[in-house]
Computed example of a mutant assay.
Amino acid sequence: MNTYRWEELSVGMKHDFSATFTEDMAHKFAEISGDVNPLHLDREYASAIGFSAPVLFGMLTSSLYSRLVGVYLPGKFALLEGIDLDFNSPAFAGEKLTVRGEITFMSESFRRMEIKATIRREDKKLVSKALIRVGMHA
């Protein structure tokens, strides 16, 4: 976990990491969220409507933005305060997803920053993009 302090951060700082979700993780997310839509859980249903496999929950994949902020950029002293999020294409269990984030704005008076971030599949297809607002408490 990174422990950047406000004065160590600057516009243009970037970080990326990769993660993979399993079918078991998707089923656990369904239990937690209560979203039991078969598009996300039933291989036959997903296939019948044109997908190669069940589609990962968008909010499950977007949880990687929370990891970006809370662990990597800026890390321990951050609080995710808001997010504008667009979903662009589906992701599937077993695919490696790459998250990239870059600080694009900082306000010294409010100790707040904006991070533009993306999640892409291994084939470089954009899964989602986000503008994340982050506050710092150290």
Rank of each mutant, 00 (worst) to 15 (best):
N2C: 03
T3Q: 13
R5W: 02
W6G: 08
E7Y: 08
E8G: 07
S10W: 06
V11C: 01
S18M: 01
T20Q: 11
T20E: 13
T20C: 11
M25F: 04
M25Q: 15
M25E: 15
M25S: 14
A26D: 09
K28E: 13
K28Q: 15
E31I: 02
E31Q: 11
I32G: 03
V36S: 07
V36K: 03
N37P: 15
P38V: 06
L39W: 05
H40P: 13
L41Q: 09
L41V: 07
D42N: 11
E44W: 00
E44Q: 11
Y45P: 02
S47T: 14
A48C: 01
G50V: 05
V55C: 06
L60E: 05
T61D: 11
Y65R: 00
R67W: 04
V69S: 02
V69T: 05
G70N: 14
G70V: 12
V71R: 07
P74L: 00
P74W: 00
G75N: 11
K76E: 15
K76L: 14
A78R: 01
L80N: 11
D84F: 00
D84M: 01
D86F: 01
F87L: 08
P90A: 07
A91T: 09
G94K: 03
G94Q: 03
G94L: 00
K96E: 15
L97W: 10
G101N: 12
F105H: 14
S109N: 12
S109P: 14
F110M: 13
R111W: 07
R112E: 08
R112Q: 12
R112A: 04
I115M: 09
K116E: 09
E122R: 12
E122L: 12
E122A: 15
K125L: 06
L126S: 04
L126T: 07
V127M: 07
V127E: 02
V127A: 02
S128D: 08
L131G: 10
L131R: 10
L131H: 01
I132Y: 02
I132F: 01
R133M: 08
H137D: 07
